[in-house]
Design a protein around this nucleic acid. Structure first.
Lengths: 224, 224
DNA sequence: CAGGTGTGTGACGCGTTTGTGACTGGATTT
DNA sequence: AAATCCAGTCACAAACGCGTCACACACCTG
């Protein structure tokens, strides 16, 4: 299910809790002066209160824009009343949008659903998630439960290819071809060594063994 | 309505007047040896003539870059003919771009519209914050925990480009293109030297090493 | 013109990666 | 049970890719 990450500042959305609507899970997270507590992937929405205890809402806007983790977030400013001058300043500080408070579940839904289609195009970052394992194609990095798996180039290619065809037996021939090795022709037994090395790397990161051997045929990436 | 501020040198664009196109107002302003007459906000384009009565166009480029008011402007050099040597020198002097003159309303439109999306992103983030590292686009300065990192121009451009695409493997080709180097074609191995120099500079400021090498592919700016 | 700075390049050396053959032990077949 | 097959693992050599250095050249400054 798609997850919509929503960041809130200070006491905004006091009564708001995670909820599910229309195939989407809305999760709420506190947003402090240091930015988001945890790093999330996918579309992000931030609702910034105009008045904050220790930091002006405008400054928070600028910080969100300056931080690459949240630079792509859709920032909505929550105003107490409809002051044209404040709206202008909010937009200039980097907000995409504004609502007149207080923030309610309905207000959040309206904003997010109205704009989701537009924003979802942005997140082109390719990424595979298979159980505890996530593979970030852009960063060329794999993680097992957030623990980085240190992989050599060939191992990464192998993992990627296996993960892209889960629950399907891939012969050694498939794997050699899938990694684009032709010259010189690779001995099929070499694949065994590749798999061994990959397994060891995942294990070193505290992971399990998602790679199952199918005797006399090849290997499978077992999903769940 | 969005305003696009365009600066012109000397007799360039003699017949050009303010006009409106596609929801944008284009305003033209003279650019003298002392820089722009008035201070403006928002995106700026400067068209610099190669030949000027009292000042060489190249020198004008450098001044624009040195002046914090115009350092972020998009500078287009206007050449009379397509001389590769002149192009090279124009780019080296700080120009982002060039056209073969004379300057017409159409040429201005084309340049500005083609590049606006890219540049407007840049304008939005005058400052990047990535963990201990902050990059000040306006001051052309980077700091690691408030300690200035002394960078040469090329190193700054490299750091900036890497930091603008964090957690993404950038090939040497990407980096060369990202720094806008085309003429003459740059040897890919030179990128290694750039990275080495950049790393050393960050280290000299007491910083860590946010630049990860991805063997046989390129480099990544690792966030967190 | 001399001195200084910034930058691209070729070359060298070292650590890493990787394909392979050999050995081992478990599984399968006869 | 013996014979056979097959996959896991190790050690090793060759190839590869990267970091670094010194140098040349262009440019700027005085």
């Amino acid at each position: 299910m798609d997850v919509v990450n929503i960041f809130l500042t200070s006491e905004l959305g006091e009564g708001l809790e995670d909820f599910v609507h229309d195939q989407r899970r809305f999760t709420f997270d506190r947003l402090g002066a240091e930015g988001p507590k945890r790093l999330v992937e996918g579309p992000m929405w931030a609702f910034v209160d105009w008045v904050m205890p220790d930091l002006a809402g405008l400054e928070m806007c600028r910080r969100l824009r300056a931080d690459p983790r949240t630079a792509e977030a859709h920032v909505t400013m929550v105003l107490e009343e409809d002051d044209p001058e404040d709206r202008r300043r909010a937009l200039r500080a980097g907000a995409d949008d504004y609502v007149i408070g207080p923030l309610t579940r309905t207000a959040v839904l309206d904003r997010v659903l109205a704009l989701q289609s537009r924003t979802s195009e942005r997140q082109a970052t390719r990424r595979l998630e298979l159980g505890a394992l996530t593979i970030d194609m852009a960063a060329l990095q794999a993680r097992w439960n957030e623990v980085p798996v240190v992989l050599r180039p060939n191992e990464f290619r192998l993992l990627r290819f296996l993960a892209e065809n889960p629950n399907r037996v891939l012969t050694r021939e498939d794997l050699i071809a899938g990694l684009g090795k032709r010259e010189p022709p690779i001995d099929e037994r070499t694949v065994d060594v590749w798999v061994g090395r990959l397994r060891r790397a995942i294990k070193a990161a505290g992971g399990g063994n998602p790679l199952r051997t199918v005797r006399s045929l090849g290997y499978v990436f077992d999903l769940t």
